[in-house]
Simulated scan of single mutants.
Amino acid sequence: MTPAHAAPAPAGSLPPWALPYAPVAPFASPRLAVAPGIQPLDPAEWFLIAEDYAGQMAERDRLVADHPGWAFARTPQGEAAEAELLELMIPHLVARHGFREDGPRALVRPDGVRVGLDDLPPIATAGRLVQDDLLLMARPEGAEEHVLVSGILCFPAHWTLGEKIGRPLLRIHLPVPEYPGDLARRVQRFFDGVQPGRPLWRANWHFAGGPEIVTPMAEVEKTRMYRERLALTEEAWLRVERQTVARLPRTRAVLFGVRTIVTPADGLSAAQWRELDALIAALPAEQGARKLGPALRARAAREAARAD
């Protein structure tokens, strides 16, 4: 069963899962602006926990409890990696983010919620601790690509876990127009090359008409999504995915983490508008149009001129 979108935010207010500013703006960084835009990640910064933690975690708890068959999916090939992932996360969260152990098999989160570590499969438990969606990839012996073997996906940006579980990277990214070819080869090298203790990260972004964070979409609807972006008004919402990639040392599985950040367009700084305007001007026209419709393009140009 596919869940309803997250509860709509009250008119004129910031929903609890959103931030009033954009801590990650890929278009404002030359190293992030062009896909795949990969760079090293300090292991101490594995997870980004901010003021939107309580609001996002309440949504994640709701989805896992009410729609477990939709929120997470597993294969036998991912079971060992799930257990290893949870094992690695616990000491990191206690040391870096103020989680508190409550008995031998439970953690208390920064929002005060107690999470039993044995109540659910490890991938679901891990997804109830952090804001990131967590996707485990493994490359079977002799295979050309990594395959999605386990995952929790509460905040999808126009896709569903059910359509992707058990699929290889190229199939997972369909129908993204730019992915097949050189980008697909670079992403596979990216997954092959990441080493234990040396995580990497990149970021993705788009504007949406509202602040909803739970936005599943079937592959066949992707074309409609691109058309809708052209009609966005200036009062759109920026959705950024801070994507991390880490190799698990024992199972050698690759963890792909997606931390979603939702910010109103009014929350962008003058410098961020200026860089957005410059990036869109440099992109091929068709690609730029998919990123920014006419109203937002005009606003970016206006805000950039004002910032100069």
Rank of each mutant, 00 (worst) to 15 (best):
V108Q: 14
V34D: 12
I49E: 08
R290H: 09
N204Q: 11
I172N: 12
L283A: 10
A83K: 04
L230S: 03
F27L: 15
D182N: 01
L93G: 07
V108F: 10
V240Q: 01
T244A: 01
A28E: 01
I213L: 15
P177C: 03
W159Y: 14
R306T: 07
I152C: 11
K291S: 05
I152S: 12
V149W: 06
D277C: 13
D66P: 01
V194Q: 01
T2H: 04
P180W: 03
W273P: 07
Y226H: 00
E59L: 15
R299S: 10
S13N: 06
G55L: 04
G55K: 10
V258T: 09
E101K: 11
E235T: 11
R74H: 10
R198Y: 01
V254L: 05
A81D: 03
A4G: 06
P168D: 09
R128I: 01
P26K: 12
G37W: 08
R109K: 12
R290K: 05
P196W: 02
A301K: 13
P196S: 02
R302N: 04
G12T: 06
A305D: 14
L107A: 08
A271S: 12
F99H: 08
A304H: 03
E51D: 15
V24R: 10
A58V: 07
G78H: 08
V115G: 13
W159D: 09
L117F: 08
R31E: 13
I165P: 12
L200P: 00
V94H: 08
P249C: 09
T215V: 13
L134A: 11
A295Q: 14
E101H: 06
A138K: 14
F190W: 13
I280S: 01
C154M: 06
Y21F: 08
A28F: 04
A22F: 11
P168A: 05
R224G: 14
H97N: 10
P121A: 15
R242T: 08
G267L: 04
I38P: 03
N204C: 06
D277S: 15
P249F: 03
G209E: 10
L161C: 12
P104N: 07
S150W: 09
H173N: 12
